[in-house]
């Protein structure tokens, strides 16, 4: 079997184990939190009587192990279960986890995609150019700008953008609320400011990593040789340095893309964008375990998938890793 295929198979089966481990950790964590769904949702008005009625309805009175096993069993049959919020609903009117997570996942992927399409080419190009003209004016300018953009908290960038491009100049919407009927163009328009915020946040990281990796490689003997052969600096970078810099660059891109899917809670809060992140935070505070589990699995799958790609690229671009002894 080709080593790449073998690695791939290994990785996929490991990923399933990882997902299982994640679901156990999440379940244990929510169990360890003080209070449960009933007391969390009732808050101050949680009399023991009401809490007990609630717990019976959702089945929270059963032992944790049993609840986990039942949940897992249903999941293996493709059923994510119902949100605990639908406790007491008549048959056929339960709120399924998929009906909550589905539209939000679409929103999250849309925003992440929009940002990635803009940010990845920009940061690669800027990184290469900065490495090419390192220590020149261009390098310093790009460095300073990107540094500043990651140096302030996300919500602060978001508020500033909102102030200038929604309040002062009414070009974009300050709210990114979209629902299932929102049309594509309208969706893009509403997502402009949150996307811009995220672009500013991740371009810096990706661009700097690209630049650092390439500069690091420029000192290697074989690049030196290429340079001594009289090749142009651009050619040296693109043909000799870049292929060997792919591992760390792709790694950093994967981390940032994963971040776009899983880590944008703050931006979602500021622009009131209905993504999975906010759903997960809300569901954690409501102790709505089935929803939290579904969100966690979605995130885990996105994360594992992206990293698998990153590792494959690392193996493919390093011949020594490709043909291990």
């Amino acid at each position: 079997m080709h080593p790449i295929v073998r690695t791939l198979l290994q990785r996929v089966s490991l990923s399933v184990a990882t997902l299982l481990a994640v679901s156990v950790i999440i379940f244990l964590m929510i169990e360890a939190l003080p209070g449960n769904f009933a007391s969390a949702i009732l808050g101050q008005s949680a009399t023991p009587e009401r809490v007990a009625a609630f717990e019976r309805q959702i089945g929270l009175d059963r032992p944790p192990v049993e609840r986990y096993v039942v949940w897992l069993g249903n999941l293996l049959q493709g059923d994510f279960g119902n949100s605990l919020a639908s406790a007491g609903s008549p048959v056929g009117h339960e709120r399924t986890v998929m009906s909550l997570v589905g539209p939000r996942l679409k929103n999250t992927m849309f925003l992440a995609g929009l940002v990635a399409v803009v940010a990845v080419p920009i940061s690669l190009a800027l990184g290469l150019l900065a490495a090419l003209y390192r220590n020149g004016i261009f390098d310093r300018l790009v460095n300073l700008t990107t540094l500043t953009s990651i140096s302030v908290p996300e919500f602060f960038i978001a508020y500033i953008l909102m102030l200038f491009f929604a309040v002062r100049l009414p070009w974009f919407h300050s709210l990114a609320t979209v629902n299932t009927d929102t049309e594509l163009l309208e969706r893009v328009a509403r997502c402009t400011l949150p996307a811009l915020t995220l672009v500013l946040v991740i371009v810096a990281h990706m661009m700097r990593m690209t630049r650092a990796s390439i500069i690091n490689l420029l000192a290697s003997p074989y690049v030196e040789t290429a340079r001594l052969k009289g090749l142009s600096p651009a050619r040296v970078i693109v043909h000799h340095a870049l292929p060997n810099a792919w591992a760390p660059i792709v790694n950093v891109i994967a981390v940032n893309l994963a971040y776009l899917v899983v880590g944008v809670v703050v931006v979602e809060v500021v622009f009131v964008y209905p993504g999975v992140g906010q759903l997960m935070v809300d569901s954690v505070s409501a102790r709505d375990i089935p929803v939290v589990q579904a969100c966690a699995l979605v995130f885990a799958i996105a994360y594992i998938g992206l990293n698998l790609i990153a590792d494959l690229v690392a193996i493919i671009t390093n011949p020594r890793l490709l043909r291990p002894r």
Partner: peptide
Amino acid sequence: SLVLTDVVARTNALTTGDI
């Protein structure tokens, strides 16, 4: 009726005419 739990978002939405 929109859920706008962040007060800054809510205020900006009002001043920009979104709500």
